[in-house]
Write a protein that binds this DNA or RNA. Structure first.
Lengths: 216, 216
DNA sequence: GTCTATAAGGAGATAGAC
DNA sequence: GTCTATCTCCTTATAGAC
C-alpha cells in the first residue's frame, strides 16, 4: 500500500466506515470490518486514529459537514409556489426512495450521536443546517413566485422539515410510495397557503395568517 | 430466586432489556447487561431463550403488541375539529417531551427491526397499527365535530402520522419545544381544512375545499 | 509507515453440579 | 430449574519486526 497523508488516510477510513454502515448497519461497523472495506491493515487504522471512538467522532463530523446540500441541489424553482413546493418535496422523496440505505445510514448516525454525550451537539447542528438550507430555499422560492410568507420563514422551514422527516421515516417503515405521494400533495397545499402574493403593495396582515385566502 | 413460569421469565427478561435500552441504548443491551438488570444469571437467560436473537425477536413483537394505544388513550374529542386535532397533537407531543427516552427506544427498536430481515415485517406492522389507531381517532373526531373528511380518512391518517413522526424526530434532534408547538398549530390548521361540515344534508362537496383530488 | 502477531478483555453460549 | 465455571469467538488496541 502506497503511503498517503494522514488526512487522506483518515478520510478513506471514514468513507469505508460509511459503506459498512450502509451495508450492514452501525453495529457491524467494527474496526475489522472497516479496515477490510478500506483494504488496509488493522494497525494502519490505529496509526490514523488513536481509537475507534475518535474515528466515530470524525465520521459524525464528516456527515454533518458534507451531507447538507446534496439533496437540495436538484431543486428547481417555478413561478407557482405550490408547484415549486410540490416538485421540491417530490425531488427529495425520490432521492429517499432511490437510495433507502442512505437515509437509514443518516438516521443511524444521528441516533448514535444522540446517544453519545460528546456528540449530541452535532446532531442538533446537523438539524440546524437542514433547517437553514430549507429556509434559504423557501426564500428563493417565494421570490421566484412573487409571494411572501405570512409567518416567519423559519417556521415554514420547520414545518417543511417536519414533513420531510415524517415522510422519510414513514416510508422506510412501510414503503408505501403512493401514500407518501398523496401526503406530499397535501403538504404542498398546506405550505402554499402560508404564502400570499406580493403584488398588492400594502403589507397589512390578515387577522389569521394561517387562514389566508388563496387566489382562485 | 423462586421458580417462575417460562412465559413470566421471558417477559421479565424482555422488560429488563427495554430498561437497558432506555438507559444505555440498544448497542449496550448485551445478555450480560440484561440479566444484571433482571437480577438473574446468564444461564437462566439461555434457559428461557435459545439465543439472544430469539429474545430480540420477542422484544420487538412485545413492543409491537403493547405500544400502540398508550399514546392515544388520553385524547379527548371536542366539537371543533381543528381544536380536537390541535389538542390531540399537543397531547401526543407532551408525551414525547415528558419521556424522550421512550421515543428514542421505540426509534432504536424500529431501526433494529428494519435492519433485521426476519423482523422487517414487524416494523411495518407496527406502523400499520399506528395508522389504524389514528384512522379510528380521526373518524371519531369527525363524528364528534359533525364534519366529514373530504379525502379518504386513511390519507388524513397518513398525513397526521407523517407530522407526528416528523415532530418527534425533529424535537429529539434539537429540543425546540416552542418551534414544534408552532408546527402543531400549522398542522392543525392544515388537517382541519380536510374536513367539511355535514350539517348540509346533500352530499354535494363545496367548491374545492382542497386540492387533494388533483392528480397528475 | 506498514506489516504480522498477539495481548487483554467482552461477547454469546454451554456443561455439569446441585 | 438454577447456579458456577468455562469454552470459544470476536473485539479493540498495542508491540515490535521490517
Amino acid at each position: 500500500m502506497a503511503r498517503m497523508s494522514s488526512v487522506d488516510r483518515r478520510e478513506k477510513i471514514v468513507v469505508a466506515a460509511l459503506r459498512v454502515i450502509a451495508t450492514h448497519g452501525i453495529n457491524a461497523a467494527t474496526t475489522r470490518a472497516i479496515v477490510a472495506e478500506a483494504d488496509m491493515s488493522l494497525a494502519s487504522f490505529h496509526y490514523a486514529f488513536s481509537s475507534r471512538d475518535e474515528m466515530m467522532r470524525e465520521l459524525v463530523a464528516h456527515v454533518v459537514e458534507n451531507e447538507t446540500i446534496a439533496a437540495l441541489s436538484s431543486i428547481r424553482l417555478g413561478t407557482d409556489i405550490r408547484t415549486s413546493i410540490r416538485d421540491a418535496l417530490l425531488a427529495y422523496f425520490e432521492i429517499v426512495t432511490a437510495d433507502p440505505g442512505h437515509e437509514q445510514v443518516m438516521s443511524e448516525i444521528m441516533q448514535y450521536a444522540l446517544r453519545t454525550p460528546h456528540l449530541a451537539h452535532l446532531a442538533s447542528e446537523q438539524y440546524e443546517r437542514y433547517h437553514a438550507a430549507i429556509t434559504t430555499l423557501l426564500e428563493a422560492g417565494a421570490d421566484a413566485a412573487c409571494v411572501r410568507w405570512t409567518i416567519p420563514v423559519t417556521d415554514v422551514a420547520r414545518a417543511t422539515l417536519t414533513i420531510t422527516d415524517g415522510l422519510t421515516f414513514g416510508w422506510l417503515a412501510d414503503r408505501d410510495t403512493a401514500g407518501a405521494t398523496r401526503v406530499i400533495e397535501f403538504a404542498a397545499d398546506s405550505l402554499a397557503r402560508l404564502a400570499t402574493p406580493t403584488t398588492a403593495q400594502h403589507d397589512l396582515a390578515p387577522t389569521s395568517p394561517n387562514q389566508m385566502e388563496r387566489s382562485e
